[in-house]
Amino acid sequence: MQDLSFRVQRYLPGQDKKPYIQEFTVPFRQGMTVLDSLIYIKENIDNTLSFRSSCRMGICGSCGMLINNFPMLACHTPVEELGTDRVEVRSLPNFPIIRDLVASLDPLFEKHRSIKPYVMSSDMKEAEEPIAEFLQSRDELESYVQFAYCVKCGLCMAACPTVATDALFLGPQPLGQAYRYCTDHRDTGAKERFCEADSPHGVWLCHLAGACSEACPKGVDPALAIQLLKRAMVFDSLRLRKKRTPASVAQPPAESKSKIDVPEFTVK
């Protein structure tokens, strides 16, 4: 490959009536990613091009885009892997566009917040004034750790056909995270999350298309989490869900003497 043809979506609300495509030519470099190409365009061709990026290593989830009609992280997508020298980049579907390739992830974060994405403890004293960490076995950790890798990039929401037709549908990311916290043995807030997921636009609108799991760059498999959440909710409503004992708090470490002789602080 010599030169790459980049077709990039441009849109400036208030000025443009609707998004349009602008074409750029980018010289190919071995190992370059789609994000590298966009940075090249911004630095050398058109500095008004807007896109969001941060870590450049698939951790922050900022650079989610629709690349050749598939939602991907631009920093995680080598141009060579696309198998073509024509690359089309658009902003994530199912989200409002702020400008060019920058999608507003507000709907995602609002829905995410609604499922209470944090460990809720019934032990209020421990929650307010924690003295030590909760104990958790390896098996207990493995029951949810896969779903804890979510970086909230929004690719699953962009890929979901149900979110595309029903903007009120909670979507794969919040529902996946609802399951993640309900499964966590330190958590006692499953009932509250079940109530949220049990809404008319909740978990039962998922058709198991599986597009979310295919799009996820971190291997989270939200479709699996949603099916497990459905099962947990059915068992809960039939009163068949196993009651589990909340995770116990670890004992504070006993006082021990340092092996090396550390001098005491002299500054009071």
Partner: peptide, 14 residues
Amino acid sequence: RTIILEFSIPNPAV
């Protein structure tokens, strides 16, 4: 009902 709900029917209308 499930099909109709996918037309973003708000909760009061549900």
